[in-house]
Design a binder for these strands. Structure first.
Lengths: 330, 330
DNA sequence: CTGTTAGCGCTTTCAA
DNA sequence: TTGAAAGCGCTAACAG
């Protein structure tokens, strides 16, 4: 036997026309077929191990039943979490989710004709944006808002950051610092806004030096924390608004023998399993990332159907209190 | 303008035949064309934002120029690392890597006709195996060996585990325990073999109770470590042969106030960034995961070309010594 | 130097 | 209850 089994081979084996096989396969309502004939077809399919060719079907129907997700860093836990949610929902709706690494600009040409729509994340708002907006491919920006780029889905980072900040204030902290991402990212702006809101609510001022910028890795958070810890008036609490820098910040405290939470409190963003196995387990703002993935798929498919879709912001950030936060030292 | 731009639209705009556009696009050597005509074509493509339809091209050429990678857990850091390496290499070779979540059995039908070949990982060797072996789709098993499943690529876990064990022995440890994965996984067998080899080399016996089985998450490692720590003759060193359980084991020590490495040494497998930001930073067996991804792509493409391919085992595991290992307490 | 032509494997309308 | 036929958008061999 040479080459893959085609529909016509199955048809020949079952003694019917290829179109009949097609309709059996697709469960065509308008097909009336004798049970025995249908069974012959099904048997032939099974026995020959026939698999429909997706390319041919896609070409014919102009629908691939696949959606793509492009992320710049496939190792980023937040995005794999989103992808998880997206994958599950896509499956329920009869679609496959295909994940590709890279920028949407790079991947768009390659994905064109392979997927019906695209979910994409961008690292910071100053990363290169799709210039010619996405050429007829329905696209949804995930985890970030950017009106100029079209529809997006994001979580309410502002409320999330405020939640954490209020928790620290309620514990009695006054000197609170925040470790934040690139100033150009809108997530950074929103998290800073949440932090500032909560501080102001409590009658506390936020001066620029309470905000320390970090890169998106552990190293950046470590450096940022060191800078804070070396100050004359060391903060009694740190809100690390990004996960990996939060781990770096924790390491900085541990390395210098500054006991968390006795001497300083620490809050992180996001809640992968490792969070509760750190030393100490970290209090965290848990963003609804899976839900973001599943809602993203729903919105994208509306877009694919040509329906108008509004930006969506998920409100339900949650604060998970663990042992990295406590009242400030006396 | 309705619908996507097709090749014939470009051709019409440039005043040439579609086949000319095709050949310009593919850089056909045998095409002789006046520079000005080529430029007209290129301009039309650019100006109309034309993107070739992958489905049509795939159907015609019977090559999708995509390879798939199916992993059961997209959040597993080892697989995202492998995917990273695979993606980079695929890109160099003119392919896209598409990542899908699930088992190969589930995904194979859906991917058929979308990709030219498939990389896949399986969780443990007792997870359901593809019964009808993959129906003409070139497949390569990644990160595990399983002769009955066809060609595979893996790392030399045995040497890796031996490397770590010898390090502990050289530090003076004698009572060493290992936390290991499911007995059915061949990686588990190989790591146990490496551990045992190194112990025997040093004239040390390995009794079954020095091997504690864990699930593949932090919780399992935590539980396994607790069990070890509560023994009358507590081990002075633990080789945790899986990353997430290793973090759990560390947490167990930290929680109970058992100081690593002063009171007990700990070695982990794999070396994601977090490893050196834990408390203390962990000594680790670093497997060449990226390389595994890139070599996997190379092998798979040989398979796609119908060439025979032997199983490959990468030898170059590396021991990264950090501060979680030290001589045993006196 | 450029156009014609015949499909790739499948779906779907229409006819028998 | 089933078959015939056209064509999705593209490529590649061959003609001109």
């Amino acid at each position: 036997m040479k080459g893959p089994v085609r529909m016509r081979d199955v048809a020949a084996a079952a003694g019917v026309d290829p179109s009949v096989v097609s309709r059996v396969l697709r469960d065509d309502k308008r097909l009336s077929i004798r049970p025995e004939t249908r069974q012959r077809v099904l048997d032939a399919i099974e026995q020959m191990g026939y698999r429909p060719n997706a390319a041919a079907r896609t070409l014919k129907t102009a629908r691939s039943m696949a959606i793509g997700m492009v992320v710049t860093d496939i190792a980023n836990a937040a995005y794999t979490e989103i992808a998880h949610g997206a994958d599950a929902r896509a499956g329920q709706l009869g679609y496959v989710l295909l994940l590709a690494n890279g920028t949407i600009e790079d991947r768009l040409p390659i994905l064109h004709g392979r997927v019906d729509g695209l979910l994409y994340g961008i690292a910071t708002s100053d990363s290169p944006l799709p210039s010619r907006p996405l050429q007829g491919m329905p696209c949804l920006l995930v985890n970030r808002r950017a009106p100029e780029l079209g529809t997006s889905i994001a979580v309410d980072d502002q409320t999330g950051a405020a939640l954490a900040t209020r928790h620290l204030i309620e514990l009695g902290h006054r000197r609170i610092a925040a470790i934040v991402g690139a100033a150009t990212a809108d997530t950074t702006r929103r998290r800073i806004a949440g932090f500032t809101d909560a501080m102001r609510e409590a009658g506390l001022d936020v001066s620029p030096d309470q905000l320390v910028e970090t890169t998106y890795d552990e190293e950046g958070g470590y450096a940022a924390a060191v800078q804070l810890l070396e100050r004359d008036e060391r903060p009694t609490a740190i809100l690390a608004t990004i996960a990996r820098p939060a781990y770096g910040a924790l390491a900085a405290c541990n390395t210098r023998g500054i006991v968390v939470p006795d001497e300083i409190s620490l809050v992180t963003f996001d809640d992968p399993p490792i969070t509760r196995y750190l030393h100490p387990p970290l209090t965290a703002v848990k963003r609804p990332l899976r839900e973001m993935g599943s809602r993203a798929v729903e919105l994208l498919l509306e877009l694919v159907d040509g329906k108008p879709v509004d930006d969506l912001v998920l409100e339900n950030c949650e604060l998970i209190i663990r042992s990295s936060t406590a009242p400030p030292p006396a």
